Computed example of a mutant assay.
Amino acid sequence: MIPRAWHLVAAALSALLMLPALAGTASAAPNSRVYSVTLAKSAADMKKVAEYWKPDRLKNADQYSPATPASQSSPTSKTASGGGQIVPAMSPRIVPARSPQILPTVGPALPKDSAAAKTMGKVFFRFGDKEYWCSASSIAAKNRSVVATAGHCAYDSRQGKPADYWIFVPNPGPGGATPDGIYVGASISMHEDWPGKGDYDFDYAFVTVHRGFKWVEKSGQLAMQDVGRLQDNVGGQGLTLGKGLALTITAFGYPAGPQPDGSHPFDGKTLKVCSGSTRRTVAPSLDLQYGVQLQPCDFSAGASGGPWLLNFQPAQKLGLLTGINSLTWNRDAKGGYDAVSSPTFNATTGEVYRRAAGLATPQNVT
């Protein structure tokens, strides 16, 4: 039996020196709105993205750079990735949100034919002419096709552009293996203050994906084989909102970047876990006023977008999403990161999730 009580907080991947943590209460603005960007609308659009990620390109996936938000580990800041053009190019649109309300808890879901979920994975995409990746997870939804990740793993707010060629690979294997399929992004749902202002209180995205596929060889040529919907294949984490602080959270991700002292304890090939308690934190330079910090955690770049789960059940590998890895922290200014943080997941987050969970995609991708 999957417990009813769950909660998620986000972990991060940008180096920050210690900043003061302030108490506060996050609240959704009455005029909060959902910002939606179409990535690949039709089956034909989806196939264009799929063709980009053939096995020859995926086998080099471990060599791509982990995406990071703007860093501020010193007085000078640097950006981690450039902008890119959406493929195919589509116009974003603002979708008015309904009156903010706390969304009832969404229960986690097991895959159709398994007693354990395989929801964690990586997203691959391009900004400009360079490939990047982040962490992410499948989330239970009525369309059975939603991925949760960091906003900066889907949309570059500095340049006002979404990522190109966005895909989700759950449970990735060595050498670009995709045992549970490849899922092309159909649409990004965000709060408007992420693309509009780069506000880290909203550094999260729910991406609706197409049905999955695998590359198979037929008559000596590669062909796409439909494998069905994401949630049916790997399950989905639950979602809970507005749970407050001082919670015990289990966070996941694929860290790969160096620590502040230059060491490389992670290679990005293995799913890692942190467990700790949550507290309030802020980062004024990033407009983060209501951040939730998880400590201890030594995640580095690559863990961005990985899930924070409340009441995680190891046997089923399921819990309740309460955040995503957004920023990494070096609070004591020593050799390694010691905390990660997430935006607060509240009623506004629920509106963004609702949008992603309500979108439909083509019934066949091959």
Rank of each mutant, 00 (worst) to 15 (best):
L222M: 13
E131D: 15
D45Q: 04
A61E: 13
L16Y: 12
P20R: 02
G242L: 01
A140T: 15
N364M: 13
T178V: 10
S137Y: 12
V207H: 03
N311R: 12
D232G: 08
G228K: 07
K243T: 09
K54V: 07
R57G: 06
T178D: 01
K142Y: 11
G242C: 03
L13A: 09
A29E: 03
N364C: 14
D287W: 08
P255A: 04
S65P: 01
N171H: 15
R93F: 15
Q101W: 00
S326F: 05
D232I: 05
R280C: 01
R279N: 14
A356F: 03
D232S: 10
K197D: 08
K218N: 10
F299W: 03
H210T: 04
P362M: 07
P255Y: 04
M18I: 15
I94W: 06
L359E: 13
L247E: 13
F127E: 05
K112R: 11
K269I: 04
Q363L: 12
D267S: 08
F127M: 14
N325K: 00
P69F: 12
V227Q: 01
P104V: 04
S285G: 11
V365F: 00
P307Q: 02
M46V: 03
G236N: 05
I2W: 09
L16G: 10
I94V: 15
Y64E: 12
P255E: 03
T270M: 10
L321E: 08
K269A: 10
Y64Q: 08
A70Q: 14
D226L: 04
Q63G: 13
K122F: 10
S99F: 09
G291R: 01
W133F: 15
G220V: 03
S304H: 06
G181Y: 01
